[in-house]
Design a protein around this nucleic acid. Sequence first.
DNA 1: CATCAGAATACAATCGATTGTATTTGTGAA
DNA 2: TTCACAAATACAATCGATTGTATTCTGATG
Lengths: 345, 345
Amino acid sequence: MENKATIHDIAKALKIDASTVSRALNNSPRVSQKTKDRIMAKANELGYQRNLLASNFRKRVTNTIGVIVPRISRHFFSSVISGIEEAVYDAGYNVLICQSLEQLNRERKIIENLLANRVAGVLLSVSMETVEWDHLLKMKNNGTPFLFFDRHCEIEGIRSVLIDDFQGGFDATEHLILKGCKSIAHFSGPQELAIYRNRTAGYRKALKKYKIPFKPELVLHSRLMEEDGAEGAKTLLSLPTEIDGLFSANDVAAIGAIKYFKKEGVNVPEKVAIVGFSNEPVSGIIDPSLTTMDQPGFKIGQIATKLLLEEISNAPNANPLMAKTTILKSSLIERDSSRKSNHQP
Amino acid sequence: MENKATIHDIAKALKIDASTVSRALNNSPRVSQKTKDRIMAKANELGYQRNLLASNFRKRVTNTIGVIVPRISRHFFSSVISGIEEAVYDAGYNVLICQSLEQLNRERKIIENLLANRVAGVLLSVSMETVEWDHLLKMKNNGTPFLFFDRHCEIEGIRSVLIDDFQGGFDATEHLILKGCKSIAHFSGPQELAIYRNRTAGYRKALKKYKIPFKPELVLHSRLMEEDGAEGAKTLLSLPTEIDGLFSANDVAAIGAIKYFKKEGVNVPEKVAIVGFSNEPVSGIIDPSLTTMDQPGFKIGQIATKLLLEEISNAPNANPLMAKTTILKSSLIERDSSRKSNHQP
DNA sequence: CATCAGAATACAATCGATTGTATTTGTGAA
DNA sequence: TTCACAAATACAATCGATTGTATTCTGATG
């Protein structure tokens, strides 16, 4: 029943020492080719399968990389995960996928758990609640290599792979302006997160470039769920200032707004043009389809993994000269929610 | 830097034996409360954290449950995973999430890997290519408890948690018939998978009940991707038989069809009414919104986990009298794609 | 033929926790 | 006080692979 064969069984069968078997199986130069061949043959014969529990225990690390995302059901994150899996594949590592569900306490527990399991490294995108970094610093002090992607914290010596959110926010807003919008609202997320601060900064920069006055009351902060988008749309309609454009820092809230506007008979894009962020699959399907910033999730996953694996195989103290942050561009996908018929740029 | 304290450090500090420390930390009745308290205090003082690698190695199993799904980005699967995580949480297990991406060879490698990592158990929903079961039988012989959910194989002694696909297929088709459809097409998936066979059987049963002749040319088989749906819609339009209803075995293909029909000016639902299966989030957003069968993913995850954990904690030979299969109902969600205005049932 | 370097292999400790068995300690009854 | 028995603790082996060190083997050279 149970799969039994160990290196000792192989050693006994061949009347050699287990250490030689171990070295042969790890392709050490200290074992002659002839012996390696004999060992390999016997290993196959016995159906030997390395006991990773023993191996990892002795080596004090696993071949597992922990990945923490807010939620796997978000298209962006599942595409990052695909990129990670692809990149990790050849290196012979596993991926342990965890969801923080945007909760700081879950993030803490997950990290606790990953450390207890001695993962080789961690890739993470922090939750919206992550305003304290004790758990991250603990991981750093513990010597576990890790790397942020998309949503990061400024921690000395920890690298990040990011989207250029500032540029993305700028591009999205400029797009609306070029479409003829004069009064542009903005949905932003928790200001503790750099990605949202940066998108907002890009928004302000674009306004400034085109000499459109910035009005704080047009910037609404929330957790950017669909309800928040609907709520925000409602708030915007009740303002004395009439708006004709909306840049939402994510697609989900933008969709909430589109639905609300539709229900209230506010024409999108004629009355209010909208741009989202992330290019969720629903964005291409909703009517009107949503103009949005596409993020190269798969690529982020690949790059982040590559960097992490480098760090893992390197000396514990990674090269301090290496670039701390890798920044990828997001690109605008124009769809119907920003196609005003009465305007030809 | 490194987190060091072991049970031996605690033992030495208190001048007792490591085995007592181990038993105390595992709350064994063989250690007095007084000693337990001393040990706990010292453990906290030293910042002791159990080395799971050593523990798992010695115990020959991990506290990890492997989960294999075709892809995590499908809403149904990510909701199952949420249910699994929730149920697993208290039991102190981890979840190792893997994607087969509908590929048999990936499924094989994943299982190989999970076994090498000595997971405590596996929950899986097989890929569309899984027509050979060698890897599953290997896992069974290996003594690793596992359980199917949603997509299963008939393997002696292995339990499943399923949706009642037959009933679902029946309900979906009957719904179309009651809406006045007389000529109903059907998109089905690979016939190797029981779920698709069953949905098709439900479809046929409903036709029979209402004395509508079954026409094989109206049943199209594919992998049910969006392209397949569009392709299928095209094929249907080219048939001599004119159709007025379509039951697609998943939402993704149904959406492909809706988009194609829209492009070709075929009115949905007036000309062709459509029902999908799975209730993906996009289904509520597409225009017209898609009538579909909702699957209780979260609940499936919870139940499957509960059963698996039972099996894990039980004797290796699980109770053969236990129900082999748990079947949950799916429920119809009526939306615009099947609301014909000219028909009042 | 003796010597010696380097290759090949063997020996033995070790990782940290668990667990069966042995020993000591403590308690109550006779 | 003593004995029996249970409770509490100590001892020691073990899980399977890895790895530093020691030993043996091989063949080339003078």
